[in-house]
């Protein structure tokens, strides 16, 4: 009797909508990955970024000249078989400098985003979880930071620390903290209202466990999207600071720096600014395309 009853209730469970021959556990991440694969733009972006990562990693093997090897005789020569992207005003091979510049840009982007993400998320979680005056304090500080145009704030920070690539990186990380912070804070607040958080409490979980196992894993999607988009922004900001002379200093093959150094030759030797400019554009575009694709894949509700 008992078993018959069980089967009765069990039967309709293998509903017609899912023929379950094979047990497949489709994690939300896996699903997002499938979504992402379908997005052609994101794949193009991914290819661009991978391409730059590849050339940055293989820099010593694909370049034929040294980064700061000057050759006065060949200054400002156009692209040729010897100098693929031409040479700059002191006869340095632009291709080599672009390749090594890719290393710098990617490293700056990576550390600036990681730093901003870490501190921003930490502050955001604290603000979102504890609420009240802690939230008030942290949020107002974020508001103040966001009230400045970000590049102005970066300039101010670099001016205080002194111009160098490392300080530019720190400045970029700092100005991106409130962006991550606000994102995480709002996500934490919205997730705290979710019923599964209440369920976790009802189950008898400590709040530290709820925070780490339930709130955090559900807030990662927007953080990842923002990190990808932020990567491009950070590279752009690093280039801007370099261009203003506040980032990487003279011989460093930083793209922004290369742009500003060659700016007076823009008419006589356009390749000197074309290639660094193009590189910045491509990398930032690549990251933005991945970021947009990730947003669509991880947050299906955002899709129009």
């Amino acid at each position: 009797m008992e078993t018959v009853k069980k089967q009765e209730t069990k039967q309709p469970m293998q509903g017609p909508e899912k023929p379950q021959k094979k047990v497949e556990s489709i994690s939300p991440w896996k699903e997002a990955y499938w979504q992402l694969r379908k997005n052609k733009l994101a794949i193009v972006g991914l290819c661009i970024v991978l391409f730059f990562i590849l050339i940055a990693a293989l820099a010593p093997f694909i370049t034929t000249h040294t980064v700061s090897g000057m050759n006065a005789a060949d200054r400002l020569t156009g692209p040729s078989s010897d100098y693929w992207f031409g040479t700059d005003y002191s006869g340095r091979d632009i291709f080599t400098r672009i390749v090594y510049g890719a290393q710098i840009s990617l490293i700056v982007g990576f550390f600036a985003v990681t730093g901003a993400m870490f501190f921003g998320s930490l502050l955001g979680i604290v603000a979102g979880y504890y609420g009240r005056w802690v939230d008030m304090l942290i949020s107002r500080v974020f508001d103040i930071m966001l009230a400045f145009p970000s590049i102005l704030l970066a300039i101010a920070i670099v001016a205080m620390l002194g111009p160098s690539l490392q300080n530019a990186l720190i400045a970029i990380a700092i100005i991106n903290i409130p962006i991550f912070g606000r994102l995480v804070r709002s996500k934490v607040i919205s997730i705290r209202q979710e019923e599964y958080i209440l369920a976790a409490k009802a189950q008898g979980m400590k709040s530290s466990r709820i925070l780490i196992h339930h709130v955090l894993p559900n807030s990662t999607a927007p953080i990842i999207v923002q990190a990808t988009l932020g990567f491009g922004v950070a590279i752009l900001e690093a280039a801007a600071l370099g261009f203003l002379g506040l980032g990487a200093q003279a011989p460093t093959p930083e793209w922004g720096r290369m742009l500003s150094d060659s700016r007076q030759y823009i008419q006589s030797a356009p390749w000197t600014v074309l290639f660094p400019g193009l590189s910045i554009m491509l990398v930032v575009l690549g990251f933005n395309m991945i970021g947009d694709g990730l947003r669509d894949a991880l947050d299906p509700k955002m899709k129009s």
């Binding site: 556990s25 994690s27 599964y196 209440l198 369920a199």
Partner: peptide, 9 residues
């Protein structure tokens, strides 16, 4: 739909 954590098996 709301009471199960979507990220957990």
């Amino acid at each position: 739909y709301a009471s199960l954590n979507p990220r957990h098996k």
